[in-house]
Design a protein around this nucleic acid. Structure first.
Length: 116
DNA sequence: ATTCTGACAGCAA
DNA sequence: TTTGCTGCCAGAA
C-alpha cells in the first residue's frame, strides 16, 4: 500500500544512474539494456539523456561503459575530447577499434540478466 | 500547457 | 549491405 502515487521511487534519471554505477569494471552495456531493465525498453534515448546530465551528479557515473546496441561509442563526443571515452574503456582492458568495442558480446553486461 | 529535443532501437527501402 | 525514417519516453524551454 503506497500512500504516494507520484513516482515509483526516484526519478528516471536516478534509476539510470543506479544501474550505470552497477556496471562492473571492464564491462559495458547498452542504453536499451538499461532502459529495458528499468521497465521501459523503448526509452533508450532517455538513458542517453540521463547520461548527458550524469556529469552534474555528485558521484562518478561510469557513462563510458554505456554504448549503443552496436557497441559503438556514440557518446564519446560528450566526454570533452573525442578520445576520452575510448581511453577510459581501454584503461579497463576493453579493446576499442574504430570507435567500436571489440568482442562486444563478451564484454556486454545486461542488467536485466545479471541483476535479474 | 505545448513544442522541441535527444549519448537509441527497430524496421523499411 | 548501408542508409534513412519512425516510434518511443521524459525532461527542458
Amino acid at each position: 500500500m503506497s500512500f504516494s502515487n507520484r513516482k515509483d521511487n526516484k526519478d528516471f534519471f536516478t534509476r539510470v544512474y543506479e544501474v550505470t554505477k552497477l556496471i562492473p569494471y571492464g564491462r559495458v552495456t547498452s542504453y536499451g539494456a538499461i532502459a529495458r531493465y528499468l521497465g521501459s525498453g523503448r526509452s533508450a534515448r532517455m538513458v542517453g539523456w540521463a547520461m548527458n546530465a550524469s556529469h552534474v551528479s555528485s558521484v562518478f557515473i561510469p557513462a563510458h561503459r554505456v554504448v549503443n546496441r552496436n557497441g559503438i561509442l556514440t557518446g564519446k563526443h560528450h566526454f570533452g575530447n573525442s578520445t576520452t571515452m575510448q581511453q577510459l574503456l581501454e584503461n579497463e582492458g576493453i579493446v576499442v577499434e574504430d570507435d567500436r568495442i571489440v568482442n562486444f558480446n563478451e564484454k556486454f553486461w545486461d542488467p536485466a540478466r545479471e541483476l535479474e
